[in-house]
Design a protein around this nucleic acid. Structure first.
Length: 197
DNA sequence: GTCGAGATTATCT
DNA sequence: GATAATCTCGACC
């Protein structure tokens, strides 16, 4: 099922249900990463300790720590040995809303509970230790529902390598859904100097 | 609503 | 030592 490139899997994950530790989320926004040929992917520069899971079997969870304070979750695609994955960017909490709300004290609206990769992870109670878990047996489970009628597609956001890595329109979302990240597409200057001029 | 800047630490070179 | 697939807070419209 998931043994295909993430660009093909990504739109199929829209509308799927992810359940973890008492909270269920319906995915509304995802992003595809094609390890080897994708400069924006962690796997672009080869296999490392962090992206090791991406090279493993599909249907597993790939979590990573980023920006020193946030955790993001991916679903590993493609057969073992091929490092592609789908980043879970946003979703709608369909079950365990109160629990999710308790975890996300900074959000005061339901639609913000899982809007954003790190937020989604927090709402679901996913931790770094869930890295590599089987999505059929582990604490985090994926349930593919009926495919969405339609989806939108566009450039990714927040990916490093402004010049080329965000040129790939591998971001998918459900049009009109309030839980889709409204984040600015413009890349900030960052504090760790990356002057292109 | 949009725009701008800071925070904070595992991982990588 | 530098980087990073982000979030939150503040200011402005």
């Amino acid at each position: 099922m998931l043994e295909r490139p993430s660009v093909e899997i990504a739109p199929l994950l829209l509308g799927a249900i992810v359940t973890s530790r008492g909270v269920s989320v319906r995915l509304t926004e995802v992003e595809a990463y094609l390890g080897e040929v994708d400069p924006g992917s962690h796997a672009f520069r080869g296999e490392t300790r962090r992206n090791r899971v991406m090279y493993g079997e599909p249907g597993h969870l790939y979590t990573y720590f980023t920006y020193g304070m946030h955790v993001c979750a991916n679903i590993v695609c493609s057969p073992a040995g091929v490092a592609t994955a789908v980043l879970l960017r946003a979703g709608e909490v369909v079950d365990g809303v109160e629990l999710a709300r308790a975890r996300r004290t900074t959000s005061r609206k339901d639609s913000d509970l899982a809007r954003g990769p790190a937020r989604l992870v927090v709402a679901l109670g996913i931790v770094l230790g869930d890295d590599g878990n089987d999505l059929e047996e582990g604490p985090v489970r994926l349930e593919l529902g009926e495919p969405v009628a339609s989806f939108a597609q566009g450039p990714r956001t927040g990916v490093s390598g402004e010049g080329g890595s965000n040129a790939y329109p591998w971001r998918f979302w459900i049009p009109g859904d309030p839980t889709v990240s409204p984040y600015k597409a413009s890349v900030p200057k960052k504090r760790a100097g990356a002057p292109s001029a």
